[in-house]
Amino acid sequence: MTEQDATLADASTPRYRSSAAARMVNIPVATLRVWERRYQVVGPAQAASGHRLYSSQDVRRLVLIKQLVNKGHGIGMLARMQTPQLQDLLHEAEQAEGLLQRSVAPVPARPTPRAADALTRLRVLLVGPDAGTRWRTTLEAVPELDVVGSLDASPQSELRVQHLQADMVVAELGALHMETVDWLVRLTKLVNARQMCVIYGFANSQVLEALRARGVILRRSPLAPHELSQALVDTVRGWQSVSEALRTLPDPAPPPRFDGPGLVNLAQSMPRVACECPQHLSELVTMLGQFEAYSADCESRQPADVTLHAYLYRVAGHARALMEEALATVAKAEGVALPERRPVR
């Protein structure tokens, strides 16, 4: 046996138990078990005691998969690839990252919705084996739309879009699975898109619900060209409408004037008001503050409607400030001292 053969044989010898392998890969043992059971990422040997034993080759494959998962690739896709393919994909990803870091003219970040002007053209990225051929001519004929690129659904295709910026990802795929959802979400983040439109042939209800929960526009194929164009034009016009409304609002609302206990005490300190207006005002301030916080949370979690939620956040803040001022006016009329403003942090 040559020295090379001996080295290969040694690398394939099962020797590491699950806990040791997971520690070397830097993942929880539970994650390793899920990867094996659900995706069959490796096929470890089993000792007479029943323990799973992993070879150095198994550990190396798991390390590659972990690195690629950290870079945004889906575990379902990676599990089907051979180890040399994983190595090539990681090498290409690192090369692309290096080029981006060394670029002397990086792509400028898109302005946040609160400062952005209304969109005049919707930048569209086409995804799918035949999406570029089928839809490019149709969409480029629409004044509101601008096709910035197209790609197939292969793992390597992601490397070609890291320099692109798009507002909408339009994907035409025959069958949808949960791993497809993960891939589309990752692709959407790569190009900094607000929303997806997915044209599909077949999908189960779980997959469709996952897409709907992300605000995806769903259309069943076959789809007429004018139907897709109209759906995208409606989207950009909706964004324009909200952006214009956002610009008409004054600056962001002032911070909350009262805290929870202060509101309660203030309402209870006005016994001379025969009706319950102070109490109602206090409840309105509380509810508007809660909706203000909810809209801010939606703004960070829902990229498809980020401008809408930025608008709602600002409207709720100004409404809350108006109700606070109304409550303070009633209190002054009743001769009740106002609680001190909370310090702005």
Rank of each mutant, 00 (worst) to 15 (best):
Q290G: 05
R342P: 01
A171N: 00
L68M: 03
L8G: 00
R320T: 02
C277V: 12
G98M: 06
V63Y: 05
R110N: 05
V25K: 07
R301N: 09
A321Y: 06
G132S: 11
L208Y: 03
R272M: 06
K189W: 00
R110A: 15
L190K: 05
F202N: 10
E172H: 01
V330I: 15
P111S: 07
D234I: 07
E172F: 08
L190Y: 03
P343F: 12
S12K: 08
R121L: 09
E97T: 14
G289Y: 02
G74T: 11
L218A: 04
P261K: 04
R38L: 12
Q195W: 01
M196R: 01
L145Y: 03
R136N: 07
S49V: 09
T180L: 05
A96K: 14
L338Q: 07
T13A: 14
D259V: 06
A175G: 03
A245N: 03
V59W: 04
Q230N: 11
I75S: 05
V233W: 07
T248K: 15
L125A: 08
E324A: 12
L281P: 02
L284R: 12
Q230V: 11
L8A: 14
T31S: 09
Q302A: 05
S243D: 14
V191G: 03
A116W: 01
L176H: 08
R186F: 00
K71L: 15
E292C: 13
L64Q: 01
L338K: 08
R110K: 14
L90E: 06
E299S: 14
S229K: 12
Y16D: 04
C197F: 04
G317M: 04
P143A: 10
R52T: 08
S150E: 04
S241V: 02
V69P: 02
E283I: 08
